[in-house]
């Protein structure tokens, strides 16, 4: 009887050990040191509205694999204005790249499609082969750099339109870059790093290539 009792206890302990949730290993933080720039990015292409423009509420039609650098080149002219100051464009290029990199690390599944970003303002406006010479130059100028937390963590650099001819201080408080604000500061002679430092606090520029 004792033997049976001991076996039962041993079995119960084993079962409890197997069924109890294991202490979760802390998820490794994705940093610029342990993560390489994605070679491609999955872009969900949404349906068009009746005027022929990609509709942020449209259904996902397919997912396009785009080389990461080309993706940045085809977003920047649709988010920033190509005739803006070169430092505003570089600041924009950095925000677009880090936004995309972050979402590549955090993909979503909608309507049965798994993707990193879509082609509308839900994420960033992307139009295939819409690159422009000035914006492509800005993307290439910051190609070897990332703008990350002091420990190298890759975080989403978010941005919004903002107001014209204004430094857009309220966006700094929200840790988002104002697109019009980037042009404002560039016209004041700020470099792209200074513009990024203004809107995103406690981050730093890190060369990773």
């Amino acid at each position: 009887m004792k033997r049976h009792y001991a076996l039962a206890v041993a079995g119960a302990v084993t079962a409890a050990t197997c069924l109890s949730p294991m202490p979760k290993a802390q998820a490794q933080i994705a940093t610029v040191y342990n993560t390489s720039e994605p070679p491609t990015i999955r872009v969900a292409i949404r349906g068009l509205n009746p005027w022929g423009e990609p509709d942020p509420r449209g259904r996902v039609m397919w997912v396009q694999n785009v080389p990461f650098n080309q993706y940045c080149e085809d977003v920047l002219p649709n988010e920033w204005i190509p005739s803006w100051d070169v430092d505003a464009l570089k600041a924009g290029a950095m925000a677009i790249k880090m936004f995309a990199w972050y979402h590549h690390l955090h993909p979503v599944t909608i309507d049965g499609f798994t993707f990193d970003v879509d082609n509308t303002t839900n994420f960033q406006t992307f139009e295939y082969l819409s690159r422009q010479p000035e914006t492509t130059a800005a993307v290439n100028a910051i190609r070897n750099f990332a703008y990350v937390k002091p420990n190298g963590e890759i975080i989403e650099l978010n941005y919004r339109a903002g107001d014209k001819d204004s430094p857009n201080w309220q966006y700094r408080n929200a840790q988002k870059m104002a697109q019009w604000g980037s042009e404002f500061w560039a016209k004041q002679g700020r470099t792209y790093v200074q513009i990024l430092q203004f809107y995103y606090m406690d981050r730093r520029l890190q060369q990773y290539r």
């Binding site: 005739s83 690159r131 422009q132 010479p133």
Partner: peptide, 10 residues
């Protein structure tokens, strides 16, 4: 086609 004052366009 978008064309700008100070930047070449394609």
């Amino acid at each position: 086609i978008r064309i700008h004052d100070e930047a070449p366009a394609q």
